[in-house]
């Protein structure tokens, strides 16, 4: 699949290091090498390649992040039901163990690759790259990557996706964005999920949750949804279709996109 397989971070890093690298001797004869390189540049380099693959195959890649149990798989099931006649969908599922989520997706007639991370708390670009060897990107328009359920670690690793979506279920509390700012700041769309439960939860105010998101300087849409009742799914689906159109326009212009909030290191390795 990958004509650049085997490329290593050494070559990718080298010109950067040489460009900005200053070498100087300290008083005691040691050599201090100035580097100024993103700590995750090896991951980011691979993520750049993944993004290039997605772009070459005209695929839009969406990374879904949230706590465990906030409804990522359920959202995907409803999304597949709504869009599978119009778009060809593929899913990469990340969990510590089991094929359960991939099986739920396959039951909808969509191809799914399950990554089991063992103990790792997040997906990284190399895991996605390996999973892509099991997928035919030419037969997919949208690839959803369901990250490991975790509101902390996934935010730090670029996978090569074009957009991030962060979910917050109403049972988690409306102050979650204030408690976990890094992952909500990374969102290109925040979905408040399980809105059907608001009837029995009198202590979750969607406006407060949105306000907490805005305090992170996030302009992304915040949508109140329920995959169960269907409430608000039109907002999510029309955003998604807009993203597919934008990706198609970008590809015709030879451009690509990273999530809106991407650390400097991720932007360094954006291809195309």
């Amino acid at each position: 699949m990958c004509d650049t397989c085997g490329c290593n971070v050494t070559q990718g890093n080298q010109h950067l290091i040489q460009e900005g690298g200053k070498h100087e001797h300290t008083h005691d004869g040691k050599v201090a090498v100035e580097v100024l390189l993103n700590l995750l540049s090896e991951n980011d380099h691979q993520a750049g390649h993944n993004r290039e693959h997605f772009d070459n195959h005209q695929v839009l890649a969406i990374n879904l992040m949230s706590s465990p149990g906030s409804g990522k798989t359920r959202l995907l099931e409803s999304t597949i039901d709504a869009l599978k006649e119009k778009y060809r969908i593929g899913v990469i599922e990340g969990d510590l163990e089991t094929e359960n989520d991939a099986e739920r997706i396959r039951a909808k007639g969509v191809s799914a690759v399950q990554i089991t991370t063992g103990t790792a708390c997040h997906l990284d670009a190399h895991m996605i790259h390996d999973a892509l060897h099991q997928m035919d990107l030419d037969s997919i328009d949208i690839l959803f990557i369901e990250n490991v359920g975790n509101l902390v670690c996934p935010a730090s690793f670029d996978l090569g996706q074009h957009r991030n979506v962060t979910l917050l279920s109403v049972t988690e509390g409306d102050d979650k964005p204030s408690k976990y700012p890094v992952i909500f700041r990374a969102a290109d769309h925040v979905l408040i999920t399980k809105s059907d439960l608001l009837a029995v939860l009198d202590d979750f105010e969607p406006e407060k949750a949105e306000s907490a998101v805005r305090q992170l300087a996030v302009e992304a849409p915040v949508s109140l949804t329920s995959a169960k009742s269907g409430e608000g799914l039109d907002l999510w689906l029309s955003w998604l279709e807009g993203q597919i159109d934008e990706q198609s326009i970008r590809r015709s212009e030879g451009k690509t996109a990273t999530p809106k909030i991407a650390p400097e290191g991720q932007q360094l390795y954006t291809h195309g």
């Binding site: 300290t26 580097v35 100024l36 390189l37």
Partner: peptide
């Protein structure tokens, strides 16, 4: 930021 700033070595 998440940067490797410098490395000191012999």
């Amino acid at each position: 930021e998440l940067l490797l700033a410098s490395v000191e070595l012999n």
